[in-house]
């Protein structure tokens, strides 16, 4: 009996030692994560001062943001919202191989996730009757109509004239005073996630962004989500700040499907030891 006990203890010690031998330094838990050590483009642009007063009704140019916006908690979900959320396997909970995050396939993040996650920055570029918003990540863009048109109704509905859902939705914008630009968006494809955690939205979601140019170099944005099918009440998902990028040059960063497959094959699948989906 005693031999068995000693053997068990030795065996357990061996297993634990073997599993631990290589570790010499523990990851610090609950440390705030700063992905690039305070050296984001946003941080660099934060030392440039106000740049003077904000020009009137003018947003044109490149704006640097955080890598990902700081998100507020979502309100209680409806049963439908919970069901959708449970079906979204984010890589914060699952390994990359097990995750079904659309990003894993380089599928479109869509709007508003491209404003909320892996954003780093965007540009506003005026065109006749609209403003384009061009995003650093994946070099995608959306159009915000400013010609007074109304948003489409019943997007994705069964009627013959119902507009198709879009990854980036349908957006219209207008100025409230000289410094606040308000953008309303509908018709967003339900396949997009709101955030990296996998919170969902329905085709009925209404998103409003309010951009306020505080001074020449500072742009503040509040985004609200109104989606009664998914959430029990409207909520402000983020209050973000962007800074005028001095050299007006955003780097290229594109999700390339073939390179993503390489990454999954070399790193992510072995890391979780299950075949990719």
């Amino acid at each position: 009996m005693r031999r068995v006990a000693i053997g068990s203890v030795i065996g357990l010690a061996g297993v634990l030692f073997f599993s631990s031998y290589a570790w010499s330094q523990n990851r610090q838990a609950n440390q705030p994560v700063r992905a690039d050590d305070g050296k984001t483009l946003y941080d660099k642009a934060s030392s440039t001062g106000s740049g003077g007063p904000a020009p009137r009704q003018e947003l044109t140019g490149f704006w640097a943001g955080l890598i990902s916006a700081k998100l507020n908690p979502v309100p209680p979900m409806t049963p439908w919202g919970q069901e959708q959320f449970r079906s979204h396997k984010s890589h914060s909970q699952y390994s990359e191989a097990e995750s079904n995050d659309p990003m894993k396939f380089c599928d479109p993040m869509g709007f508003p996730r491209d404003m909320l996650y892996d954003n780093r920055g965007f540009a506003f570029a005026p065109m006749p009757g609209k403003i384009l918003q061009a995003f650093q990540f994946n070099r995608v863009w959306r159009e915000i109509w400013t010609d007074g048109r109304e948003l489409p109704k019943n997007v994705g509905g069964r009627s013959a004239d119902a507009a198709d859902p879009r990854w980036y939705g349908y957006s219209v914008g207008h100025w409230e005073g000289d410094y606040t630009f308000v953008v309303d968006t509908v018709g967003i494809d339900e396949r997009t996630w709101l955030d990296a955690v996998g919170h969902a939205h329905s085709i009925d979601v209404k998103v409003q962004e309010r951009y306020t140019r505080v001074d020449h170099n500072t742009l503040e944005m509040t985004m609200t989500i109104d989606d009664p099918k998914t959430y029990t009440k409207p909520f402000a998902i983020t209050n973000a700040r962007f800074r005028w990028l001095p050299n007006q040059d955003l780097v290229e960063e594109i999700c390339v499907p073939s390179l993503m497959q390489d990454y999954l094959k070399i790193i992510a699948d072995p890391a979780s030891d299950v075949p990719g989906k």
Partner: peptide, 12 residues
């Protein structure tokens, strides 16, 4: 990656 707590996002 500097290390971090739950919910840390490694997609950078």
């Amino acid at each position: 990656q500097l290390g971090g707590g739950e919910g840390e996002d490694k997609k950078y």
